Simulated assay, not measured.
Amino acid sequence: MAVPTFLNRNVSDLCVGKPALKPLSAAATVSEALALLNKSSEPHVSVWSCDHSKNVLEDECECRCVGKICMVDVICFLCKNENSDNLSKALETSVSQILPKGNLIVRHLAPNSSLLEAIDYILEGTQNLVIPVQNYIGGKSRKTQSKSSSLSCKHRDGIEYCWLTQEDVVRFLLNFIGVFSPITTSSIESLNIIDCNVMTIRYHEPAMSALDPLTLAHVEQTSVAVVDDLDRLIGEISPSTLAYCDETAAAAIMTLSAGDLLAYIDCGGPPEDLVDLVKVILQEKKLGALLELMDEELSLSSSSSCSVSSCSSDDELGVCRNNNGSGRYASARRAEAITCYPNSSLVAVMIQALAHRASSVWVMHEDNTLIGCVTFKGILKVFRSLANARPITR
């Protein structure tokens, strides 16, 4: 099969309309990152390392995106015993210290690179491709005159960047789905893209026992399945849901069962009875700093709360208004797991994942017992193999 022409298109074509990244300095503290995350409408913030030393010319400054940070990184960091015992010290830790080590999650890519090259990077483990934002009138990289702060990096020549995600690429490919027919109507089982090596936790087990799997799921863009004793899927602890929580979710992970955590992080905000339970257990464990953090966040939430609570018409897509008013939970995807079956077609799973903004879809038997999952990365493997092109030389 010849390589479809659109796979050789420049990645800059996918960047039209993408917002510019708000850079956070790698030297910023976790506390400063939290402040930026709580103000941002996006769940992730890009982290940059910029060399602005005096012996380097301004037009030669090396500015590189070295990673991204979201609430999941902060929550998992605060859950560690040494950090929950000394919360103030943990919050003063440099952001660079909590970025995943040894994983090229973020990579720079030239705007004239091909989509096929972008897919190859993703298959190697990249989550976000950092690309200079183009000025489509003059064809030059867009620049910004915004002032830098102690938290942000002012890039070389003021150039702005955006990034492409795995979801962006899959959504783009869906527009050309007919080119790959009839393979895309084949079942996911026949295409051998069901990953059976999934991470699970029992419903009644402490949520804290899923901390390491959750950290790995965050890197691999999957989730931790919550199952019953018969391996039937109950729900999922999803990084994409936790990314819209606040930092007090760390206290919930440290005190609740996996089943209760599902209710705590579901869209709409945590139920009052679970909030009270978390507080009681925090007191028993003498984790006063986390308790104070919860009280502070609840106070901020109540001060900005609305008198009317409601779910939006987009609830089928997993978007729900916070029943405590405004807040990060208002934009969260529901904790309910998105599922399919082995005989589901590739195109059906693609549409399902994109509609629910889910980076992975669980695969089940008819009796709800878990088989595995299909990820965006697995989907892209199919398209890459169909392209029948040689690996790109970089």
Rank of each mutant, 00 (worst) to 15 (best):
residue 50 C to G: 10
residue 236 E to H: 00
residue 385 S to K: 15
residue 44 H to A: 02
residue 246 D to P: 03
residue 72 V to W: 04
residue 354 L to N: 07
residue 194 I to N: 13
residue 332 A to L: 07
residue 392 I to T: 14
residue 37 L to N: 02
residue 282 L to W: 02
residue 151 L to H: 06
residue 292 E to I: 00
residue 342 P to D: 09
residue 326 S to I: 06
residue 254 M to C: 13
residue 145 Q to A: 14
residue 339 T to I: 15
residue 295 D to R: 07
residue 385 S to R: 15
residue 142 R to A: 13
residue 138 G to M: 14
residue 295 D to G: 00
residue 162 C to N: 09
residue 76 C to K: 09
residue 317 L to Y: 11
residue 60 E to S: 12
residue 62 E to G: 03
residue 284 E to W: 05
residue 316 E to Q: 08
residue 152 S to I: 10
residue 300 L to A: 03
residue 34 L to G: 01
residue 188 I to Y: 09
residue 119 I to F: 05
residue 243 A to E: 04
residue 175 N to F: 06
residue 252 A to S: 04
residue 323 N to D: 08
residue 147 K to M: 12
residue 381 K to Y: 10
residue 5 T to G: 08
residue 82 E to V: 11
residue 230 L to V: 06
residue 324 N to W: 13
residue 339 T to K: 14
residue 85 D to I: 05
residue 219 V to L: 13
residue 68 K to V: 08
residue 359 S to V: 00
residue 43 P to F: 05
residue 117 E to M: 09
residue 221 Q to R: 13
residue 271 P to Y: 01
residue 213 P to E: 14
residue 131 I to T: 06
residue 136 Y to N: 13
residue 2 A to I: 01
residue 301 S to H: 01
residue 377 K to V: 12
residue 8 N to G: 07
residue 91 L to M: 11
residue 43 P to D: 05
residue 215 T to P: 02
residue 212 D to K: 12
residue 201 I to K: 12
residue 176 F to G: 00
residue 253 I to Y: 14
residue 256 L to Y: 02
residue 337 A to Q: 05
residue 124 E to Q: 14
residue 16 V to L: 14
residue 312 S to E: 07
residue 268 G to Y: 01
residue 367 D to N: 15
residue 338 I to W: 02
residue 32 E to C: 02
residue 337 A to R: 09
residue 119 I to R: 06
residue 124 E to D: 15
residue 302 S to C: 01
residue 368 N to M: 10
residue 170 V to K: 03
residue 190 S to T: 15
residue 6 F to E: 05
